[in-house]
Write a protein that binds this DNA or RNA. Structure first.
Lengths: 145, 145
DNA sequence: AAGCTAAATTGGAATTATTCTAATTCCTGA
DNA sequence: TCAGGAATTAGAATAATTCCAATTTAGCTT
C-alpha cells in the first residue's frame, strides 16, 4: 500500500466497506487517505492529482467511482456549493460550510446541538428530513490567508 | 407585451432594472412573469419552454442571460440543490428548501427570525456572511402528490 | 420621425464536471 | 490454481451552462 492510513482509520475503512460487501482496494484506500490527509475540501480533480502521486496509473473514472463508494459507505461527505465542482470532506459530524468569495477557501463551521434542533424543527409537519445542508458565503478571515 | 405582469410586479420589475441602468425588455419581462406565474422552482429548461409559448423566437442563451440579470437585480433567487440543475424562485424572504427525494418536488420552508438569528450566529468571529443557504432533503407529503 | 450607439438577443460552438461503456485486470473463495 | 464476480481503465458521451461573433433592438438626439 503506497498511502498510509493510521491503523484507526484503516480499520474504519475496512469495516465500512466490508459491511456493504465491497472490497477495500488500494485505490479506494488511497482516495480515502488523500481526503483524510489534507482536509482542504478538495474537488475530484484535486483528489485525482494527489492520488496519482501515490498510484500513478489511476484513472479519473476510478477516482469518481471510489468517491461514490466512500460516500455510499458514509466515510466521506460531499459538499456542494452553488454550481462549483463537488468537494469532499471527511468530517462526519453535523457541520456547515463557509466559503470565502475572495479566496475560494471553504471552512467547516460547527453547529451546536441547540441550533441544530431548532433548524430541524423548521421542517414542516408531514415531511421527514434525512439530510440538511447549511452553507454560508462571504468574506473570510481578512489578513491571515 | 405578450406576458402580463400585474401592475405591481411590472413596477417592481421596471424599477429594479432601471436602478442598475438596464433595459426592461420583453424577454426579461417574460422570464420574470413566467417565474412569478408558476412558483414551482422551475429550471432554466422549464423556463425556456414556458417562455417560448409567449415569445417563440427566444433562445436558450437569452433565457440564461435574463435569469442572470434578474438574479443580479435581486428579483429572483437561485436555488441550488446538490448537482441538479439550478432552479429559480421569486420568494425573496429568507427561507429554506425541502426537496422530496421521491417526487423531486421542492417546497419553500419558512425560517422564523429567532432561528435565523441563531443560524447567523454560527458564523465565526472574523467572517462576514453575505449569503446563507439552507436545504433539506427527504420524504415529503406521502399521499397528497 | 430618422439616425445613432450601446445594450440585448440570437444560434451555434465550446466548456466543464461528471457519468457511461465496454474491455481488461484483479481478488477471493472453492 | 482457477473461475467468476468486482473493480479499474481509457475514452466516448452527456448535461448544464457559458462563450462568441453577428444581428437586432431600445432609447436617446436631433
Amino acid at each position: 500500500m503506497s498511502y498510509s492510513l493510521t491503523s484507526f482509520s484503516k480499520d474504519t475503512f475496512n469495516t465500512a466497506l466490508r459491511e456493504k460487501g465491497l472490497r477495500p482496494t488500494k485505490q479506494r484506500a488511497c482516495v480515502y487517505g488523500v481526503i483524510l490527509g489534507k482536509r482542504d475540501h478538495p474537488t475530484a480533480d484535486d483528489i485525482y492529482d494527489r492520488v496519482k502521486r501515490h498510484l500513478p496509473g489511476t484513472s479519473f473514472a476510478t477516482v469518481y467511482n471510489c468517491l461514490e463508494t466512500l460516500v455510499g459507505c458514509g466515510l466521506v461527505k460531499q459538499v456542494n456549493m452553488d454550481r462549483s465542482p463537488t468537494r469532499y470532506c471527511p468530517n462526519l459530524t453535523p457541520h456547515a460550510h463557509f466559503r470565502c468569495t475572495q479566496s475560494g477557501k471553504i471552512y467547516d463551521v460547527e453547529i451546536d446541538n441547540d441550533t441544530l434542533s431548532l433548524i430541524q424543527a423548521l421542517v414542516p409537519e408531514g415531511f421527514e428530513a434525512e439530510n440538511l445542508d447549511l452553507s454560508f458565503s462571504g468574506t473570510g478571515k481578512p489578513s491571515n490567508n
